[in-house]
């Protein structure tokens, strides 16, 4: 039997919300500063949705929805695009989708295995499909290009980054 030391999070469970908020701010800023540097053919990963899915799987569907909305609102606020609520909507839906796979007893297992990556892919797919429908004009891309570039490629690129917390967590445990 593996015995773990009691941490500050065990004593004050609400502290993790502060950590989520801090990570969300850091990721949102990184989304603007660093992510454009790794753009490939106009495709960039969405790192905020990784956090939303992580919260949804760790904390449940309701918190996934709330965190999705708040994180999306943060991104909306920081983005230059000027339309408030688009990221909030798509991240809410991503949180809702990921929250379907929440099982309290299997949280640890999900977070440190390929399951997280699969759930992330599904949530990101929903996120990107709706986001692209709202943002991409039909004249800009054909239906095939729309799905391959703006939905599928972006989802794949996002799950590449999604494997980082999975590896980190599995190595730590």
């Amino acid at each position: 039997m593996k015995i773990r030391e009691t941490t500050l999070f065990d004593k004050v469970p609400q502290l993790r919300y502060a950590v989520y908020a801090a990570v969300a701010v850091v990721l949102a800023i990184a989304d603007f500063l660093l992510i454009p540097l790794i753009e490939i053919q106009g495709v960039v990963p969405d790192i905020i949705v990784i956090l939303v899915v992580w919260i949804a799987i760790s904390e449940g569907q309701l918190l996934g929805i709330i965190s999705g909305f708040l994180c999306g609102l943060l991104v909306d606020f920081l983005s230059y695009e000027g339309v408030l609520g688009v990221h909030a909507l798509v991240n809410t839906l991503a949180g809702f989708t990921a929250g379907y796979f929440f099982k309290e007893s299997r949280t640890t297992l999900t977070l440190q295995t390929y399951r997280f990556v699969l759930i992330l892919f599904l949530a990101t797919f929903v996120h990107n499909t709706i986001f692209s429908f709202l943002y991409i004009r039909t004249t800009e891309a054909t239906l095939i290009e729309f799905f391959t570039k703006y939905v599928f490629a972006k989802s794949v690129y996002t799950i590449v980054f999604g494997t980082i917390p999975v590896l980190f967590r599995s190595l730590r445990n």
Binding site: G68, V83, L84, G85, V86, A88, T92
Partner: peptide, 14 residues
């Protein structure tokens, strides 16, 4: 939250 998001889209101006 979906309704709120749409409301923000409709009425929210950055």
């Amino acid at each position: 939250f979906v309704v709120l998001s749409f409301s923000l889209m409709a009425f929210g101006d950055l």
